[in-house]
Simulated scan of single mutants.
Amino acid sequence: MKKLIFSAAIVFASLSMHAAPVVAVTETGISVNVQDEYTEVAADAVPAAVKSTIEKSFPGTKLVKAYKNEKNEYKLEIASGEKKYTVFTDASGNIIKK
């Protein structure tokens, strides 16, 4: 009986030696979206070349909002029915990205 108790004690002692505390490591990431600052401008302030490009490239659309940044680039929100699009142009009316 003594051998059985002694064997059980040795088994439990060896199991507890391998037990290690669980350390949870969490990483926090910060996502930064760098974007030029655009300020809203009136539709009348948008150059004629930009308006002409929008009319030719996107027929049947309506200019909803216009924004301008320090580089003299325009962010235009246009709509066609229920669909809305954002178009970027420079002051000359060249489309930067759609």
Rank of each mutant, 00 (worst) to 15 (best):
K2C: 07
K2G: 11
K3E: 07
L4M: 13
L4K: 15
L4G: 06
A8V: 11
I10Y: 11
V11G: 05
F12Q: 07
A13N: 01
S14L: 11
S16D: 02
S16G: 04
H18R: 02
A19N: 05
A20Y: 09
P21E: 13
P21G: 02
V23T: 06
V23L: 02
A24W: 11
V25Q: 06
T26A: 03
G29R: 09
G29K: 12
S31W: 03
V32D: 00
V32F: 00
V32M: 03
V32A: 00
V32E: 01
N33P: 01
V34Q: 01
Q35S: 13
Q35D: 01
Q35H: 11
Q35N: 04
Q35R: 04
E37D: 05
E40R: 14
V41W: 00
A42G: 13
A45Q: 15
P47Y: 09
A48T: 12
A49T: 08
A49H: 02
A49G: 00
V50L: 06
V50W: 03
V50I: 13
V50P: 01
K51E: 04
S52K: 13
S52W: 03
I54A: 07
E55W: 10
E55Q: 15
S57Y: 12
F58I: 14
F58A: 13
F58Y: 15
P59K: 13
K62V: 15
L63T: 15
L63A: 06
V64Q: 03
K65P: 07
A66C: 05
Y67G: 12
Y67H: 12
K68Y: 02
K68M: 11
K68W: 07
N69L: 09
N69C: 07
N69S: 08
K71N: 15
K75Q: 14
L76H: 00
L76W: 03
E77H: 11
E77D: 13
A79Q: 13
A79K: 09
A79H: 04
G81S: 04
K83C: 01
Y85H: 05
T86H: 08
T86F: 11
T86W: 00
V87Q: 05
F88A: 13
F88N: 06
T89W: 09
D90M: 04
S92K: 07
G93P: 03
N94S: 11
N94Q: 09
I95P: 01
I96Q: 09
K97A: 12
K97H: 12
K98E: 12
